[in-house]
Simulated scan of single mutants.
Amino acid sequence: MISAAVHGFILAFGLILPLGVQNVFIFNQGATQSKWVYVLPVVLTASICDTVLISLAVFGVSAVVLGVAWIKVTILLIGVLFLLYMGYSTWKSKPKAEGTTGTTFTPRKQIAFAASISLLNPHAIMDTIGVIGTSSLSYMGAVKLAFMLVCILVSWIWFFSLAVAGRLTGKLDHSGRFIIILNKISALIMWGTAIFLIFSILPE
């Protein structure tokens, strides 16, 4: 069981570490929001979505869904639209003036965006199905459950850590210039991911 837990930790950490839309958005919100509590909607949403994806991947349900071609294409198209819109919103967003209240993204908008980039992100889905789901096939019973729970725990810890790192960065950036640059980079990553997904839909 310990080996399965270690395997799950290394695997999940390796998958979640690269700079992607989800990570950039969470870090961005941590840096942008005026208080730590305002970041919780995006962190909790992303964590819960990852929990759902990992659970489905381990139990094999999502693999069946993605086996249907039209469902996969639909998910890709919806993901492209969300990424294009999110990129536009992020590019236009600006940090609040120091001492003012309010948030760049409302809790409802945070939840919608976090859910979309988690559940409608084909890269995240394929990572959970193709890597975590496949790796879990070598385990059974309690050992398989331990593998899954460790993978989920890594996601929760990582997302909270990203938000904290973003929050600390935002407090050091009193001019707001770093946040503006971060917004531009975030938008470019989102648009780049959308373009990549469009090409993945096109027939070879």
Score class of each variant (00 low, 15 high):
Thr74Met: 15
Leu17Ala: 13
Val58Ala: 12
Glu98Val: 12
Ile48Asp: 08
Thr45Asp: 03
Ile71Leu: 15
Ser93Met: 12
Ala12Met: 10
Thr104Ala: 06
Tyr38Trp: 00
Lys72Val: 00
Leu84Ser: 04
Trp91Ala: 12
Leu19Glu: 09
Gly130Ile: 09
Lys35Gln: 14
Met86Gly: 03
Val24Gln: 15
Leu40Asn: 00
Thr104Ile: 10
Leu44His: 03
Leu120Ser: 07
Ala69Trp: 13
Ala115Pro: 01
Phe59Met: 14
Val39Gly: 03
Phe82Asn: 02
Phe27Ala: 11
Ala124Lys: 03
Trp36Cys: 00
Ile54Asn: 02
Phe27Gln: 04
Leu44Arg: 02
Ser116Gly: 14
Pro18His: 07
Val65His: 01
Ala12Lys: 07
Ser116Cys: 10
Ile111His: 01
Leu84Gly: 06
Val73Met: 03
Ser55Thr: 14
Trp70Ser: 09
Gln29Phe: 07
Gly87Gln: 05
Ile26Asn: 04
Pro95Ser: 05
Ala63Cys: 04
Val80Phe: 08
Ala31Glu: 06
Lys94Cys: 05
Leu56Tyr: 06
Ser55Gly: 14
Lys94Ile: 11
Val21Asp: 13
Pro41Glu: 08
Ser93Glu: 09
Gln29Cys: 11
Thr74Cys: 15
Asp127Ala: 13
Gln29Asp: 13
Gly20Phe: 06
Ser34His: 12
Ala115Gln: 02
Trp70Ala: 06
Val73Phe: 04
Val42Trp: 04
Val21Pro: 15
Val42Lys: 01
Ser116Lys: 10
Lys92Tyr: 10
Leu66Glu: 07
Val39Gln: 11
Gln29Glu: 13
Val39Trp: 04
Leu120Gly: 04
Val58Ile: 15
Ser55Gln: 06
Gly102His: 00
Phe25Pro: 08
Thr103Glu: 14
Leu17Glu: 06
Leu120His: 03
Val39Thr: 14
Gly99Asp: 05
Leu19Pro: 08
Leu81Arg: 09
Gly20Tyr: 07
Asp127Val: 11
Tyr88Asn: 01
Ser89Leu: 12
Ser118Gln: 11
Ala63Leu: 12
Ser116Leu: 13
